[in-house]
Structures are given as structure tokens and as C-alpha cells.
Design a protein around this nucleic acid. Structure first.
Length: 242
DNA sequence: ATACATGTTGGAGC
DNA sequence: GGCTCCAACATGTA
């Protein structure tokens, strides 16, 4: 379910509920449902992998983790974590994390850190990277404080695109490559978004889940890597280790 | 059918 | 306090 682009698409799918009043809210999520009832959705936003329902003075923060899903005006098997009923229609959220946060998203989130946001700042990302010379690039791409919205697919594909080995230490990567890293983290994420919209994402995978490198024909390596301990695919033939 | 996977969090332990 | 490690959570797919 997740990775930033997928959440952005979800937000678009439900955006018609903006300015609509929640007539009733229920679900297994441990939040004060009363608080939401009778309130009007002011805005539906995203920050990276987070889906945000903004009301006056507070907002709901939904994270789909690995298995989350949602349905618009329909249900699936199993108990929803959250159902929002409106005069016309309902939204169901499953297997996700739901939190009620006071204030507005602007108080909490740095939009410059969201690769999909128009306020994204590559410059700021580079400054954050510079502070972590000992960290592995495979971990840094998954750091939501630096690249909010980037997930494990994007991580693998970006590193393949820029020919950088995932176990490279940031401090050893030449500045030119770091520029490419930051640029491609955004560019690939937008490619992902387009492909996902067209239901053709998997078709475009170059390295994740592959056995043979599409570029040089070498055998692709797969290992659990970094502090994040996520599966990492790379080609030793054409991804340089710094 | 058993294992794995687009992810994060909270608590234990040091 | 802060860092790291791990369990826990939950579900569709191969």
C-alpha cells in the first residue's frame, strides 16, 4: 500500500470529501471518535506517507504501514480502524495507524522534507545528508526526516539509476553523485506516481525483485542491509561502492 | 501453505 | 538522556 505516491493518489481519490461534514465516526482505532463527529473536513493533505484529515483545531493522521488499505463508499472483510460517515458516502480505513493530533499539520511537518510537495527543498536535504557522513546511503534514503515519502522500492530503484552501491557511506560519495541522488529521489518518485496511476508500476522495476541486471547482465545481489534492515537489491557490476 | 513484503513504533536493555 | 535492537502489528500474494 504505502510509499508517498500511493498516498498522494489515495488523497486525490477521497478529496471530494473536503468541506463535507462527518456525521458519525467509528472504528477500532483508539482515538476520541466524538471529537470528529459533526465536524467538517477542512482539507485533505499528505506529508510523505501520511494522510492528513484537517479539521478546525486538530487533524487525523493516518499511516498505512505495510498492510493498510482503504475503501471509498464500500467495505471489505474485517473491522475498520476508522470509518467516517458523511451525509453522502463513507470512508473506511483498515490495518492502519490512526492518531488525532492537536493543531494543524503546519505546526508539525516540514513540507520542505516531502519529496512530493511543491515546497520540497533539495538544498535542505543535502544539508541534512552532510550531517551524517558515517551513515549508509540505503538508510538515509529511507529516513523520513530527509526524504519523506521515499520507501524501499524507491530506495532500490534510485540507487540503481545513479549507479551507486547501497552500502556506500555518505561521506565518501562525491558531491556530484549526491546531487544526482537528491535529484533522482524526486524524479523517480514522480515516475513512480505516474506509473502507479496507470497501473504499470511493476513493469518498470529495474532492480527490485530482479535476478539479472537489465543494464549489464550480471547477477543481482539481494541482502538485508543497513540499520533499517530492509531488503536491498543491487548490481555489483554497475553500482559503485564509495 | 508457509513465508515474505511498498513500514513504523514503543519498550527493553545498555 | 540517548542509542540500538527487537517484538509487535496486520494482510495479500506467491
Amino acid at each position: 500500500m504505502p510509499e508517498g505516491p500511493t498516498i498522494l493518489i489515495a488523497a486525490e481519490e477521497i478529496r471530494s470529501f473536503t468541506r463535507k461534514r462527518v456525521t458519525y465516526a467509528e472504528g477500532s482505532a483508539l482515538i476520541d471518535m466524538q471529537r470528529v463527529q459533526g465536524k467538517t473536513v477542512k482539507e485533505i493533505r499528505t506529508w510523505g506517507k501520511l494522510l492528513l484529515f484537517c479539521f478546525d483545531g486538530f487533524f487525523l493522521r493516518i499511516h498505512f504501514l505495510l498492510f493498510g488499505s482503504y475503501r471509498v463508499n464500500e467495505r471489505r472483510a474485517g473491522k475498520p480502524k476508522l470509518t467516517l460517515y458523511f451525509a453522502k458516502g463513507e470512508l473506511n480505513f483498515y490495518a492502519c495507524s490512526v492518531k488525532l493530533m492537536e493543531g494543524t499539520p503546519d505546526d508539525v511537518f516540514n513540507w520542505k522534507g516531502d519529496v512530493l510537495n511543491k515546497l520540497w527543498s533539495g538544498k535542505e536535504a543535502k544539508a541534512k545528508l552532510k550531517e551524517k557522513p558515517a551513515a549508509l546511503v540505503c538508510d538515509l534514503l529511507l529516513d523520513q526526516d530527509i526524504f519523506s515519502g521515499v520507501g524501499n522500492i524507491i530506495k532500490n530503484e534510485v540507487l540503481f539509476r545513479i549507479h551507486v552501491h547501497p552500502a556506500s557511506k555518505l561521506g565518501k560519495i562525491p558531491p556530484r553523485k549526491i546531487n544526482q541522488l537528491v535529484k533522482e529521489a524526486v524524479d523517480y518518485t514522480f515516475d513512480f506516481l505516474e506509473w502507479k496511476r496507470n497501473f504499470e508500476l511493476k513493469k518498470h522495476f529495474q532492480i527490485i525483485g530482479k535476478k539479472i541486471c537489465p543494464r549489464c547482465g550480471s547477477k543481482v545481489k539481494k541482502e538485508i542491509m543497513g540499520k533499517t534492515k530492509r531488503r536491498t537489491f543491487y548490481c555489483t557490476g554497475c553500482q559503485e561502492k564509495y
